[in-house]
């Protein structure tokens, strides 16, 4: 189940969406989330949905892969739809059976909200699917740079994020190793009452934390001896480059908003 989840995962590729600058993608997603709330009738939701499908096609992501990976989210969307169907009581009654009554407005709202939710999840998933975590970090760092004036520690936050990302696999391996070591000593995580299972997790967490602190200490020393002393006077190895296609993304967004404004009620 968890391996199939694609939220937050990055799949390397070479589509035009993959090659876009993370800044333009991040800006776009941010603006898109706001723009979604402009939609208020069938035509405008159709425009949103159409646009999203277009982006998926551009990113060359197989629809089957997306549907499969987003299954848990789709369940959630279906659940919202049902809630709206049963609990919105406005407009004409469409269907009645014993105590179940489905109203026209309920159906309409249910579908709209579901589409809104679906479109948001799809667009953000496409962002993470096509942009490596480190590029996202770079993009965020540059986009947030103006906020440095407001004393927001942008560089430090970005560095923290990239180091955390870099250590996730290392700590995963470590967890696995400790788990096996504890299993070999007769620890049992899969049976017993909840209380017993929680207790069995403690011998797993303690060594993990101890080693994480040790790693953090070593890493801090390694950074210091390599001359790290904060963001001041640092140059950057990773350079982002804004291409015509990135300006294109923003133009596409303006067009999308214009169309939405035109077709909405």
């Amino acid at each position: 189940m968890l391996e199939k989840m694609i939220i937050g995962r990055y799949i390397p590729g070479n589509s035009i969406v993959h090659r876009m600058d993370p800044r333009s993608k991040l800006l776009f997603v941010f603006l898109f989330i706001i723009a979604v709330f402009l939609a208020n009738n069938v035509a405008s939701y159709a425009v949103l949905l159409g646009f999203t499908v277009f982006v998926i096609a551009l990113a060359r992501i197989r629809p089957y892969f997306l549907v499969n990976g987003l299954k848990p989210v789709i369940f959630l969307i279906a659940f919202t739809l049902l809630l709206h169907l049963f609990f919105t009581r406005e407009g004409a009654i469409l269907f009645e059976w014993k105590f179940i009554k489905i109203y026209e407005e309920g159906l309409r709202m249910g579908i709209f909200i579901s589409i809104r939710f679906l479109v948001l999840v799809l667009i953000t998933t496409i962002l993470t699917l096509t942009t490596s975590p480190i590029s996202i970090t770079d993009g965020l760092e540059t986009l947030l740079n103006p906020f440095k004036k407001l004393k927001l520690p942008v560089h430090e936050l970005a560095l923290m994020m990239s180091i955390s990302l870099r250590f996730i696999p290392t700590l995963m391996d470590e967890t696995d190793k400790i788990l096996k070591a504890q299993l070999a000593r007769g620890s049992d995580l899969s049976t017993g009452s909840i209380k017993e299972r929680v207790q069995a997790v403690i011998p797993l967490l303690v060594p993990l934390f101890v080693s994480a602190f040790k790693r953090a200490e070593d890493l801090a020393v390694a950074m210091e001896v390599r001359g790290y002393r904060g963001g001041e006077g640092r140059t950057r190895f990773r350079q982002l480059s804004w291409q015509t296609r990135d300006t294109g993304v923003l133009i596409a967004f303006v067009i999308l908003v214009a169309v939405l404004a035109w077709v909405r009620k």
């Binding site: 870099r166 390599r226 790290y228 640092r234 190895f237």
Partner: peptide
């Protein structure tokens, strides 16, 4: 420190 080999090699240079 870096997330890829080249980032790591560049770290001291960046600093």
């Amino acid at each position: 420190v870096g997330s890829t080999v080249q980032d790591d090699v560049a770290f001291a240079l960046e600093n």
